[in-house]
Design a protein around this nucleic acid. Structure first.
Lengths: 294, 294
DNA sequence: AATAATCGTTCACATAAAGAGAACTATGAG
DNA sequence: CTCATAGTTCTCTTTATGTGAACGATTATT
């Protein structure tokens, strides 16, 4: 039992799609006999029956159907590659394409790509999208890498590789000039701007709030970190978010950290396809970020 | 410029992964010279430089990197197929695997697979999951087909095929014995159970409610149709949902339709991978459902 | 700086695989 | 029954793949 012969598989694919040997042979400009024997060889080497010879018709077996699906996958990828190669493939160095969840902190993303900015000759393109679009784009090679704060659960046949890039402690942040304390309960009179109920941060916050018997007066919710940042800056309300989101405002004193929530973290993940080969320049990016570090 | 040679591509893949010709040649049990010439042939036939010969090292070019990614994709799929074929591939007819969005109406799903139930010898397995998992499973061949009420937007390079299978008018449904009218405003005093704010149905309902100056008293929200159905049945509140969800209850008179919302539809989509080959038995299922019909 | 070891390329030649074409078999339409 | 059609099987030719030795060029060693 030898290795899978892609040449044979190609012919099988062509025939299975058409369902007809003679026609396919004409289309491919080879003789039927060649096609016939190649497919037979595939069946023999793989020890599987791909077609049922019903009368003078070729009918896909169940195994044949399964195989066809894989072949479809394989050769349409191949066709994409061919097209890419034949249209010349832009000669200048193609940019590194990084996708990021649209709701993530821009500051965090910026800190991630900082090493790329330092390198003079590297080009990259950054795209914001939702989690589903992120995974689609990865699968379709529109992205080299995705950044997200939502993990992808590992399937049986791992399609995605998802690793923890960094975790940020989550803090209560608000305008300066008010008494700061590390006791949540003291913020009963304050107004709050929070991430939405489904989010992990909110869930953690709500649990803590319940524990401290705090009933927060929620004036606004937003899942977008950029939006949260604006609200934190301009609403006068307290917010709950990773510090990195309002890094600049904390530095300038426009906002201050009230307290860091214990045991609550925002996780940042880097997602690639399982068959993971990183763009050479990306390897150094990852090394800059020690796992679970900042 | 001939067609892409998968044999050449395979060797390129192996070498590019290892970065080393000699080692790879030994691993594959062929001579370096063979490897060298095959790769050179690939470069010539595709008219692209895959490696830069720097000193006595082979360094991937940018085009080479792109190509490698496709090759990785192609041959890991191939490896999966090989494994599947070599482990014998379960001889009994493999079941048709249908994935459905966990929040969809079970009645609708049942009506979709009804033709399969009628066929004695067909086996199928039904799996509930979220939209992301659905797409993952499709991409990884764990599913033949997915049912969802969320469309997948078409990317540039179409990965998914998403077609409208059916659309159901959405109705206000509630317990019998109260005056029915087709004027939304008359339901001001009622309690409501509604889909969550992000959902298309809710958005449409809210717009209508605003138009009729109805401020609904929302006692519960749920995105799961099975859950909504239970709430509709047991809460005494009014609900907004496609009729099919509570088909049985409407028939038995336990619930009644108050009014059908104009221009509001719940859409049901069937999602497959773009390189779309349907399981023979699925073709008939689709024909049973005329597009935009019931 | 000289030397040895390593790695990729090139050549002539051997071997294996793909393909052509005729003869053959079986099926289905008229 | 007969003929056209579709797939299989055979022999033979052509093409592609692979080998091993010689070569050139680069890196490491002393």
């Amino acid at each position: 039992m030898s290795r899978l012969n892609y040449h044979h598989l190609y012919y099988f694919w062509q025939v299975a799609k058409g369902g007809n040997l003679t026609e396919t042979a004409q289309r491919l400009h080879i003789s039927q006999s060649a096609l016939s024997s190649q497919i037979k060889q595939l069946e023999q080497s793989m020890q599987v029956q791909l077609f049922n010879r019903q009368g003078r018709k070729l009918v896909l077996t169940d195994s044949g159907y399964q195989t066809l699906k894989y072949a479809e996958d394989i050769f349409s990828r191949g066709a994409e590659l061919e097209q890419l190669l034949q249209q010349g493939m832009q000669p200048q160095r193609s940019p590194i394409r990084i996708g990021a969840l649209a709701t993530m902190s821009r500051n965090f993303i910026e800190s991630f790509i900082a090493p790329l900015l330092a390198t003079a000759d590297s080009r990259y393109s950054l795209l914001s999208m939702n989690q589903t679009a992120l995974l689609n784009a990865l699968a379709g090679h529109q992205l080299d890498l995705a950044l997200s704060n939502i993990a992808v659960q590992g399937n049986d046949s791992q399609l995605w590789q998802c690793r923890l890039l960094a975790r940020q402690p989550v803090a209560v942040i608000g305008p300066p000039g008010t008494a700061q304390t590390d006791n949540l309960a003291e913020y009963q009179q304050r107004r709050w701007v929070l991430p939405p109920v489904q989010s992990p941060i909110r869930t953690a916050f709500d649990a803590l709030a319940a524990q401290y018997q705090l009933q927060p007066d929620v004036v606004a919710e937003a899942d977008d970190m950029a939006m949260l940042r604006l609200l934190a800056r301009d609403s006068g309300a307290l917010t709950v978010m990773p510090e990195v989101v309002v890094k600049d405002e904390l530095q300038s004193g426009r906002l201050v950290k009230y307290l860091t929530l214990p045991q609550v973290y925002e996780n940042f993940y880097i997602i690639t396809t399982q068959r993971d080969l990183l763009h050479p320049q990306l390897t150094q990016l990852l090394q800059a970020f020690s796992p679970a570090g900042g």
